[in-house]
Write a protein that binds this DNA or RNA. Sequence first.
DNA 1: ATCCAGGAAGTCG
DNA 2: CGACTTCATGGA
Length: 270
Amino acid sequence: MADNDIIIKDTKDFDIRQILDCGQIFRYFRTGESRYEVFSKDKRCEVVQDGIAVIKSDDKAYWESFFDLDNDYTAIKNALKDKPFMKEAVEYGGGIRILNQDPFEMLISFIVSANNHIPRIKGILNRMCEGLGKDMGGYHAFPTAEAMAEKDADYYFSLGTGYRAPYLSETARAVVEGFDLEKPRQMSGKEANKYLCKLKGVGPKVADCILLFAYRKSDVFPVDTWIRKVYTDMTGKTAPDKVIRRYLASTYGDLSGYAQQYLFFNKREN
DNA sequence: ATCCAGGAAGTCG
DNA sequence: CGACTTCATGGA
């Protein structure tokens, strides 16, 4: 074991398979039994979980933050367990953690995610990294805004992004030209959502995902096609996304983001 | 083959 | 404001 290894002995709140497959990250590969390769920005790590979990990298501090290791998920799950519809979801996805990811990477990733399948999103983003990301020797970094802004919509169309192609070139250019991705940190969830929606390809749901996965705003509640199914299970009816979001966010309060991940994961896999 | 996916933009009323 | 339509792509 190297000095930089992160060892997680108590894994009741850490399941790498669940963490990676719950839809918050698209750049990872299963490389073997209980073995994964994970990428973020220009960094890479390897996670092996067989009984205990070990995270191998050359930047321990980065990945400790990335995997949210200072956060107490036992307390979060205990607080959620007694709330409506949560028991089964928390038990099924008990090893989920919300990753601490990069704002620009989340912005681009979730623009691609709109009305798209997760396996396809992964393919598109990996092709984008190989085409535009810095060669790190064995893998490619996530592209910078500058690198992305140099390409026009035709390029993104050639990656298979379909009608989202112009959103990617336009949004990358907006960031290069000064759209401040640090601003949402000082904003309320509501303000920040509105702010991010000024970018092409970003609507309420994509903005909520960015706020949850990059800015750690846990009072948001991204509503997608799976959460719509959950809502119908709960109430027996359908409703506009806005209504669903308001209902669920008021039900789970400051723990909405966590609740959303447990519900999403459980619905998608069961 | 047909449906559908971590929805958003554009148009119309 | 809200409802309704359109938008590429390919996995299942």
